[in-house]
Design a protein around this nucleic acid. Structure first.
Lengths: 147, 147
DNA sequence: GGTGAAACGTAGGCCGT
DNA sequence: ACGGCCTACGTTTCACC
């Protein structure tokens, strides 16, 4: 992992669909040498995948909220049950296990406030052991370099 | 924006580097028709970009935390100053303006606890109007579909 | 790490529906 | 307006130096 690898990663983080030819030119390598490095970075797990970044507005998920979730039982079974429920939930885009007064922080994307309310009561309200629920509605994201 | 577009977006969200040929086969279209749709989705702003997803561990940023930040002044100038500071901060990967008792939620990625402590005191501690700081260290992310 | 050539994918004109 | 076909062009990918 030298300077050239760092440059490759910086470029791919900005534009994941750059052609190998353009990428090799930017980092000062021949296409084949560049491709070998990219393949190695993928194989070693430094690059875990590529994703298209979609506009939430255009996707009909203009309502975004972070939700702090506390469980009533601190058992392994309770955690696994909750995580399993989150995994199968399309609205839940991220589920982080955190330190602090509650166990989880979710990022939830819904169409609008009404859809979010439905998710809040009908989904989160019915998952076993869910105790404390605090929603933080996202008003805007001055910086967002997710992925 | 019909069902085929939805399928295209679902595939590109999962694998942003899929070839147009494979993508067209998956959504049941000819390569040219598929490419036209993808180009239209990019032009109309539904697809805002493509990114490589990198492993934080491999990138030397294995320590991740969410930080709730409250400002002492609720003026436009105070907010703009804070947001500007966050924009130029490499450790801050996301900065969301949220509702609730505090104004901002940050995602911070650092090498380790020591690096995070340095960031916490030397960066966040010196930004004007920063009042309340609460860190939530990420222990793990059972689900993470960021991007 | 670079070179070259074959295999592969892309992009755009054109026509049918 | 939109999808499919065809083709020239560019890119990827491999053995080899």
């Amino acid at each position: 992992m030298d300077r050239i690898d760092q440059n490759i990663l910086r470029e791919l983080r900005t534009d994941g669909r750059i052609s190998n030819q353009d990428l090799s030119a930017r980092v000062g390598l021949s296409p084949s040498a560049c491709l070998r490095r990219v393949a190695a970075l993928e194989k070693s797990g430094v690059i875990t995948g590529y994703r298209a970044v979609l506009s939430p507005q255009a996707m009909g998920t203009g309502f975004i909220a972070y939700v702090a979730v506390g469980l009533s039982a601190h058992t392994k079974a309770a955690q696994e049950g909750f995580e399993r429920a989150m995994r199968y939930c399309d609205e839940v885009r991220e589920c982080h296990n955190i330190t602090g007064t509650v166990e989880y922080l979710l990022r939830v994307e819904a169409a609008d406030l009404a859809a979010y309310k439905r998710f809040h009561t009908e989904v989160l309200g019915t998952v076993p052991h869910v105790n404390a629920l605090t929603s933080y509605v996202v008003l805007g994201s001055p910086k967002d370099e997710r992925g």
